[in-house]
Design a protein around this nucleic acid. Structure first.
Length: 166
DNA sequence: GCCAACGTTGGC
DNA sequence: GCCAACGTTGGC
């Protein structure tokens, strides 16, 4: 069981062509819909807590990198796109009585002055237990160990203590 | 319940 | 564009 007093940290992947850190900065807050992987769903629905810090990551682009910070800004909500036949994320096997897919509202916090690239992170010791750095990882929502958060913040020129206190 | 086929992710 | 990794599907 997770200790619900303990701060937790997350990484959310987004393709910048679709939704970038600048898009989040512009709108301020966005429902993180369209997640259709059960492990990621479980993180969204069961493990995140309102206020948790999020590392925003750009994937499938020229320079994959952590590009900023956000925070979990709601309790879990059913993802409405699963019930919308016109949506790419429609799931005919799900029902409003027993939703299969969930989302959280995500709020913008900070855009890094310079991205913390995947290339740079791969230089780190691999005892961090950071899922992003594991081979073949495709999770779009994943926990980040505090040591990795501190490293990312440090490379981004931020004071870890300022952002990581719970 | 097994597992081959298939689709998707995502770095390169 | 390539391809490794991995999740899902569906026949049996």
């Amino acid at each position: 069981m997770p200790d619900h007093k303990q701060a937790q940290y997350w990484l959310l992947k987004s393709e910048p062509d679709v939704f970038s850190i600048d898009d989040l900065k512009a709108c301020g807050r966005e429902g993180w819909d369209g997640v259709r992987n059960y492990q990621a769903r479980n993180s969204l629905r069961d493990e995140m807590r309102q206020g948790d810090l999020v590392i925003f990551y750009h994937s499938s682009c020229a320079q994959p990198a952590a590009v900023g910070l956000a925070k979990v800004d709601s309790e879990a909500q059913p993802d409405p796109t699963q019930f919308d036949p016109s949506s790419d994320y429609h799931d005919p096997k799900s029902s409003p009585e027993d939703p299969r897919w969930w989302l959280r509202q995500i709020a913008f916090v900070h855009r890094f002055d310079a991205p913390v690239t995947l290339k740079a992170m791969k230089e780190w010791e691999d005892d961090l237990d950071f899922p992003l750095l594991r081979r073949g990882n495709r999770l779009s929502v994943m926990p980040v160990p505090p040591a990795a958060v501190a490293k990312i913040l440090g490379v981004a020129g931020l004071q870890p203590e300022q952002w990581m206190k719970s």
